[in-house]
Design a protein around this nucleic acid. Structure first.
Lengths: 191, 191
DNA sequence: GGGCGCATGTAATGAGTTACATGATTGA
DNA sequence: TCAATCATGTAACTCATTACATGCGCCC
């Protein structure tokens, strides 16, 4: 996860203090990443040490002091560089769900199906939530695009789960996973 | 990433030595995770210390010694537990791509479009690769399902990139990202 | 007066990567 | 003979999380 790019980018758009930044990420960018507060503060300290941001103290009324962060020239250059790298690359995405699915045949089919139904319910709940969030944004805004992206992937997930569950109802064959994996290899030594 | 589940599961299916396990993950499960060899050895050592696997030395001809790992009773129980947890939960997936996309309007539209075309080419290449791999597996095998899953998500990615690129051609408005994010908030204080 | 929100961190720990180290065999 | 494959790791490092610590203000 390119958290540095995220922080530099947000600070480039607007100078902010740490808590504000953390709040923005927690509440409105939660589909992007789930960066935790201590991690954020840690990263900010590192960026400051690297001379990519500067901080200035301020205080509003009797509230705790705030350290407002602002991009420096080198920070801006670094942002541009990271952004270019990020935009060009097609990052591989891995799904934790897949690992469990590989071993689906290791538990009784009925039980497995129950779990998958639960998983599907979870995905459905997320879709409802994100659809509401998407509706609140203008089509075409940057935030809209990230939300839409997630919505599409969640819908893919739902469709795939439906396909899988349907398939499981038909045949509950317990297969030899290792053999299946090996079998598909391109023959290298003796046939 | 639930690497422990993956290792326990593979060892449950078949006892293996470390290198063999690493090879399987590198070559045939590369769409699941990209666990590195040293991490694998590290995890195996930890699992052994925890009493979830046992290892036995063996040697074949003059090749280096191998340590073959086998699940213990507690290892098997742990596997079942982790598998249940994994199957029930709908894990959130985060996409590194999204972070860059949030700042798309920070670089000239033409340049950005160029990068996105590159990204799309990368996705296309992956789709070709994975489609070939999928074709080599029996529909309905566990490996087939994980591959199919990735294929679907990659196709979603491609469709989304196409949508985005098309949209960029129409309007290249540079918007205030922070304002967009805030605006969509449910009003809390004064309207 | 009690809990939540604001605001900032530290310390300990864990998870994973990179670079390095070793040494034998096999195939081009 | 040179590179790749087999086989196992260690050491140093980065990145991120969890749990902990502090203290004030605001609202119910």
């Amino acid at each position: 996860m390119d958290h540095t790019l995220l922080i530099l980018g947000l600070l480039k758009l607007e100078e902010m203090h740490g808590y504000q930044l953390g709040d923005l990420i927690d509440k409105r960018l939660k589909y992007l990443t789930d960066l935790k507060k201590p991690t954020l503060y840690h990263l900010l300290a590192k960026l400051e040490a690297a001379g990519q941001v500067t901080k200035s103290v301020s205080r509003e009324g009797n509230r705790p002091e705030r350290y407002t962060y602002r991009l420096t020239k080198t920070g801006e250059a670094q942002f541009k560089e990271l952004l270019r790298q990020n935009l060009q690359a097609a990052h591989a995405a891995y799904f934790n769900d897949d690992i469990g699915l590989l071993f689906l045949s290791e538990i009784p089919a009925a039980e497995a199906r129950g779990y998958l139904e639960q998983k599907r319910a979870g995905v459905d709940a997320r879709i409802t939530e994100i659809a509401a969030a998407t509706a609140r944004h203008d089509a075409g805004s940057p935030a809209y695009y990230t939300l839409r992206h997630h919505e599409l992937h969640l819908e893919t997930e739902r469709a795939w789960l439906a396909e899988l569950i349907a398939h499981m109802k038909k045949r509950a064959a317990r297969q030899n996973i290792i053999a299946c994996l090996a079998e598909a290899d391109t023959p290298k030594r003796k046939k």
